[in-house]
């Protein structure tokens, strides 16, 4: 799939999925009439896929271990909610000439605003963090994530510590999985190009990458910006799914959640990470009754995985497929 056919497939999947699952119970399509509970889980899975795949381009492909992904998600969530909830009426009125399409337009606008603000935040984090590696970078990104959270907590205009309520529920299955497909496409298309080999080169050896003319600074910042843009989108979708967001919901533990998905799926494997994000979403639901034990089990899993299989449960799957393709 060296050509644009993969893009076409993505658009096709997006079209079909959004047509089938508009998320409205009165939809004419029989498939759309699944119950709300399942629908929510499927949407959450999509959001988690976006989060995991977007963290993967930063940590997996470019090797910049980040613990601040929830911070970017928060920026996207609050940014988009500002458009629909705080500025909602005014914008809706301004767009009234669009008729029935107006709410959708507001939503699209809010997604765009959320993603872009998060991308700007990613740029702000990426630039000063460039000199750092490994555990230092992890701590600094964690610190940035916490700073974002503390700032939101102390900003009364967005509800402070109480959070922001009454966000319209615009998020549908179609939008979520459409954007998830878009995210997967973008990340894999970037990585699977001569240009994108730069990300992998930076991950493997920064000094050698520089010596081969790869501008490591530019690649790292690009990875951060792309990653946080999609994290922002995921945040925006999340805000418009749950309808209510608090700064606490985007704490360090949320970032760790995403990290676990990426590690489980295998750093640098888009397919593995996608599968892991879905699996973990469903597993979380199954274990909701045993909430207390769930995180203990995850923590143990993480430790055992690192000792026995650091490439992740599904890591290497991409390479295996690649190898088969080359053989044929």
């Amino acid at each position: 799939m060296g050509s644009r056919s993969s893009l076409l497939i993505c658009v096709l999947v997006f079209g079909v999925v959004s047509a089938l699952f508009t998320g409205h119970p009165e939809s004419a399509w029989p498939l759309a009439q699944i119950d709300d509970y399942l629908l929510n889980i499927l949407i959450m899975a999509g959001i988690n896929v976006i989060l995991a795949v977007s963290l993967n381009i930063v940590s997996g492909h470019t090797g910049q271990f980040s613990l601040g992904h929830a911070g970017f998600m928060a920026v996207g969530a609050y940014g988009s909610a500002a458009v629909t909830q705080i500025g909602g009426k005014a914008i809706l009125n301004a767009l009234s000439f669009l008729g029935g399409a107006a709410p959708t337009c507001v939503f699209v606008l809010s997604l765009f605003v959320g993603g872009s603000l998060a991308a700007v935040a990613g740029l702000a984090v990426g630039l000063p963090s460039l000199r750092l590696k490994g555990d230092y970078l992890a701590i600094v990104t964690l610190g940035f994530g916490e700073i974002i959270r503390v700032v939101i907590q102390n900003t009364e205009a967005v509800g402070g510590a109480r959070g922001l309520t009454g966000i319209p529920s615009f998020t549908t299955l179609g939008w979520t999985w459409g954007l998830a497909a878009f995210c997967i496409y973008c990340v894999s298309a970037l990585v699977r190009s001569t240009y994108g080999r730069g990300f992998l080169a930076v991950r493997d050896d920064e000094i050698a990458a520089e010596a081969m003319g790869v501008n490591t600074t530019k690649y790292k910042v690009t990875a951060f910006v792309v990653g946080s843009f999609f994290a922002g989108l995921a945040g925006a979708l999340y805000a418009h799914l749950i309808g209510y967001i608090t700064p606490e919901g985007f704490s360090f533990l949320k970032s760790v959640d995403v990290v676990v998905m990426v590690i489980l799926g295998g750093m640098g494997s888009t397919l593995g990470v996608t599968v892991a994000a879905c699996l973990l979403t469903f597993l979380n639901e199954l274990l909701r009754q045993a909430e207390q034990y769930r995180m203990v089990a995850f923590a143990l899993l993480l430790i055992v995985l690192m000792i026995l299989r650091p490439q992740g449960l599904l890591g290497g799957i991409d390479r295996w497929i690649q190898a088969r393709r080359n053989r044929s």
């Binding site: 992998l200 080169a201 991950r203 493997d204 050896d205 050698a208 990458a209 010596a211 640098g268």
Partner: peptide
């Protein structure tokens, strides 16, 4: 340049 202690992109 090349490197004294080989620095290839090891995962590629």
């Amino acid at each position: 340049r090349t490197f004294q202690n080989i620095r290839l992109f090891s995962s590629l």
